[in-house]
Simulated scan of single mutants.
Amino acid sequence: MSTISSTGAGPPFGAGLPAAPDLRKKARPLETVIRTILMVSAFLSVAITVGIIFALIRPVIDFFAEVPFGDFFATEGTHAVLPLVGGTLMTTVIALLVAVPLGLGAAMYLSEYASRRARRVLKPTVELLAGVPSVVYGFFALSFVTPTLLQDILSLEVGFTNALSAGLVLGVMVIPTVASLSEDALTAVPQSMRQGSMAMGANRMQTTLRVVLPAALSGVAAAVVLGMSRAVGETMIVTLASGNLKNLSADPREDMQTMTGFIATTAGGENAVGSTSYNELFAVGMLLFLLTLVINVISIALVRRFRQVY
């Protein structure tokens, strides 16, 4: 058997084979295009946000030039906004009381208990709720939740429109957001943590609640806060089902108007441009924008506070 020495005059190893293509030169133009598209998308998002702020500032300044801050941030009066804030918080809290337990429960089942076949069927089914138009949810609240569930089954004294019905249906709409994002966070937890917990004698429920859920807490918190933002900004459900009465009350069975509902019902084309009622829409919109911004900032802080790197 003949061998080729490292110092011999034989042909080098790999001689006669085609040279490996230089992938970097071919990929570089494509990477440049993709990087440019991503950069433009990022700057466009920022520019749209800044444009929204500038569109709101001038009417807000004109509004507060005519209406004092005290009359706006008041509990009663024509321009009082605190009843709208109270109605928004009431429907949002009810929605979270529905969406968080059900959404998180669905996420834990899909992540820890469901088989692959069941997950392939159930997860798209849950996410289908997010594709239902909100106006359909509103009519569902009026035609079933209020008359059948609240009045007939639970025997509650509620009117045709009320914050309780709007909050319940709003919670159903938020379930896919909480469930999908929480399930992604739970699935991202390394399998080794589950195996280590079960090796110590913990059952599946103990592992889920004491190991997997705390490890995915940042993602779960982000899902809940994002669902809260979704509930605060929803319009059609609260417009149809919550009512159009400015009412600062702690009783969810009463009619309450939210900030988004006020904007939807007032912006009907009957307010002259530049009038006080017209500018009031922008003032409420600015307050809603700031409220949503605060929620998102809290979400980012929670994610950074509880984030774990594996």
Rank of each mutant, 00 (worst) to 15 (best):
1 M>G: 08
2 S>C: 02
8 G>I: 03
11 P>F: 12
21 P>I: 06
32 T>Q: 12
32 T>W: 14
35 R>V: 02
42 A>D: 04
47 A>P: 01
51 G>L: 01
52 I>V: 15
53 I>E: 13
60 V>Y: 11
61 I>E: 10
66 E>K: 11
67 V>A: 12
71 D>R: 14
72 F>V: 00
73 F>Q: 04
74 A>T: 01
75 T>W: 15
80 A>Y: 07
82 L>R: 03
85 V>C: 11
85 V>L: 14
87 G>A: 07
90 M>E: 08
90 M>Q: 12
91 T>L: 12
92 T>N: 13
92 T>Y: 11
93 V>T: 15
98 V>Q: 10
98 V>P: 01
107 A>D: 01
107 A>T: 06
115 S>C: 07
117 R>Y: 11
118 A>G: 03
125 T>G: 15
126 V>P: 14
127 E>V: 02
134 S>C: 06
141 A>K: 11
145 V>Y: 15
146 T>D: 01
149 L>A: 13
149 L>S: 06
151 Q>F: 03
156 L>F: 15
158 V>M: 05
163 A>D: 07
169 V>H: 02
175 I>A: 01
176 P>E: 06
178 V>C: 07
180 S>D: 03
199 A>H: 07
205 M>S: 02
211 V>H: 06
212 V>H: 04
214 P>Y: 07
221 A>R: 02
221 A>M: 12
221 A>I: 04
222 A>C: 09
229 S>W: 13
231 A>G: 06
232 V>P: 05
232 V>Y: 10
233 G>F: 12
252 P>N: 10
253 R>S: 15
258 T>F: 04
268 G>D: 11
269 G>A: 10
269 G>C: 05
270 E>S: 08
273 V>H: 00
279 N>Q: 07
283 A>V: 08
287 L>P: 00
289 F>R: 00
293 L>G: 05
295 I>V: 13
297 V>F: 14
297 V>K: 04
300 I>A: 14
300 I>Q: 15
303 V>M: 13
306 F>S: 00
306 F>H: 00
308 Q>E: 03
310 Y>R: 12
